[in-house]
Design a protein around this nucleic acid. Structure first.
Lengths: 339, 339
DNA sequence: AATTGGCACTCAGATAGTTCGAGTGCCAGC
DNA sequence: GCTGGCACTCGAACTATCTGAGTGCCAATT
């Protein structure tokens, strides 16, 4: 077990390093934190922490900086998540106010999170494995085009235009719409495919092309719900961070390649505070070995729907960012309750 | 007028500098381009070009690099737009194949353009100042929520959820939908607001909240058509360019701030080759003073709908990029003809 | 009049030496 | 167990020197 005072020293080192981004030395530590011992004693502590791989000296006889393991211990045991300031709180509230549309809410959320943390913020679109159909609409555009709109229970609206080689009449579309609505309303998404198949027998053969196209489109929409896109904000913050500057290009590529990022945040499990963390080399991908991820889930009607979080250098203000991510997730959950 | 040989020298300098990104000297020029004169003569030419502000020496006695004015002269008079290679052509064709959905087409387009040019690519969503309404749909979600769907003549589909404080019945919504469809179908977008006002007198006062909300929502959607969003791809390429590296953060901010970027490309006018160019300091914004923009319009049914282009360092391969932007704009126009 | 060879000159970049000081590790003494 | 003291280390900053690519200019050549 690591003694209490050593932990105090580690905490001080992490805090100072986060603030100054300079390796921190024994003397500065004593001065800034009012330790009741001399710098020599702190040096001994530091030697011990270095043995434990919690801190490291970038070169002989310079101050120490935390290792990933050190940050990990810090967030697990030492960081108090400080509550947001009042101004931050009101910022969140005003930011979230008066938006009804899912796209707009998520857009605001991601910008808000980026502003609060000064990091790259990301918000995943709600996934709906266990969602249900609220409504399906067919809209006649012209005789070769029909618009399908799928509305799910988080007020997510998806649309797709069907292109038909055989002409179809507005009446037929209206007819099919009625059948469809009756058959699919309030069904779980997983049942959509089989329901449509069941419908196939009850419609006139002329409508077969339409129905086939419909089945394919709805299948795709349901799939798209399973693993969906991420929206980003504040990528410029990456370039501001000294430590990520050198590796910024592969990082940008990785986060632009949504699949990678989705997989990454998907497999993160919430720890304490209801927030999931990946620090530096804990990330499976090399591109992320100098970055940390702070991720939380948000909910809609009591069910987890997707994740949001921030990405930044390992030298980030964890207390702040954890608090911000948690708060924003909570506000987003709240905002989604209303739609 | 600038003599022919001086122009040859300028062309050689631009080409070499684009290739090597090193200042180019008189000796290297003679060697690489088989000029039939000695390096001393070339030096005289270079002194002349420098007087004309077409090239500049980063420091006394190093080679020269083109100025923005030099690039401008190059693209206006000296660059042949080389046709794309066959492999590039087929890449475009396969890339564009088999997509029906506007979102998907534009998404593919922007990634394609980024790949072809190795720059940041951007595609603006179609704007519809002069568009017409194809269809308006009201979809009953529950008694406090109604979904409005607006379909315009480029198969652009926009949606918005209305939140109502007073409950509304499905029947009323259906009723209003019928009226709405009759009143708005095939009307120009600009007429939407007045049409809705006209409708106000003919509906029961109970529906007033719905109608007001509807008017607001449609107004916003029409507005959104006027100046709409841009999608980006390949931002990682910014970081790869040596010359933009230092100023990458404000640049990222500027392009993430869509409004700025939209305004910028909006006011660019096509020059020769049907492509608009802004080179370095020709851009009104300081953030862009080290970058060039290559922009083209694309069309839908013979009318310009929006723009696309690339952003990169002033030291970019203009011949290539102009060709790529032009070709992609053409293919996109073609692809949009089908939907 | 244009071109050329020649030459002095400039300056960024590389290499090397020096100094400075923040910071360390360790030890003897409290 | 803590502390003051001290020798030691090494990056950063500064200076000096050298090198070579490249220039500008001029007198000689075509």
């Amino acid at each position: 077990m690591i003694p209490e005072r050593s932990l105090d020293v580690l905490r001080a080192i992490v805090n100072d390093f986060i603030e100054t981004s300079q390796p921190v030395g024994s003397k500065a530590l004593v001065e800034r934190h009012g330790f009741a011992v001399s710098s020599a004693t702190i040096r001994n502590e530091m030697a011990y922490l270095e043995d434990e791989n919690l801190i490291v000296a970038p070169h002989t006889s310079s101050g120490r900086i935390p290792t990933d393991k050190g940050y990990r211990l810090f967030v697990d045991r030492l960081g108090e998540v400080k509550p947001l300031s009042i101004s931050e709180r009101t910022a969140i509230e005003t930011f979230m106010q008066g938006s009804a549309d899912l796209d707009e809410i998520l857009g605001r959320t991601v910008r808000l999170l980026s502003q609060l943390t000064n990091q790259v913020a990301m918000v995943q679109y709600p996934t709906l494995q266990h969602g249900t159909v609220k409504n399906v609409e067919l809209i006649f555009i012209d005789e070769h085009q029909v618009l399908v709109v799928l509305i799910t229970d988080v007020s997510r609206v998806q649309q797709h235009v069907l292109l038909l080689s055989n002409p179809v009449s507005a009446e037929r579309v209206a007819e099919l719409r009625a059948k469809l609505a009756g058959s699919l309303a309030n069904q779980p998404l997983s049942a959509v495919t089989s329901r449509i198949e069941a419908l196939a027998s009850s419609v006139a053969p002329v409508d077969n092309e339409l129905l086939t196209a419909l089945a394919a489109a709805l299948g795709e929409m349901v799939d798209a719900n399973r693993q969906d896109k991420i929206i980003l904000a504040g990528t410029a913050n990456l370039a501001k961070s000294q430590e990520l500057r050198s590796s910024i290009s592969p990082l940008l590529e990785a986060i632009e390649e949504q699949v990678v990022l989705l997989k990454l945040i998907q497999e993160m499990q919430a720890e304490q505070h209801g927030v999931a963390l990946r620090i530096g080399s804990e990330n499976p991908l090399d591109e992320f070995s100098a970055s940390s991820l702070v991720v939380s889930s948000y909910e809609k009607q009591g069910a987890e729907v997707a994740k949001l979080g921030v990405l930044g250098p390992t030298r980030m203000n964890y207390s702040n960012n954890i608090a911000a991510v948690r708060a924003v997730a909570r506000y987003l959950t709240e905002a989604l309750g209303g739609i």
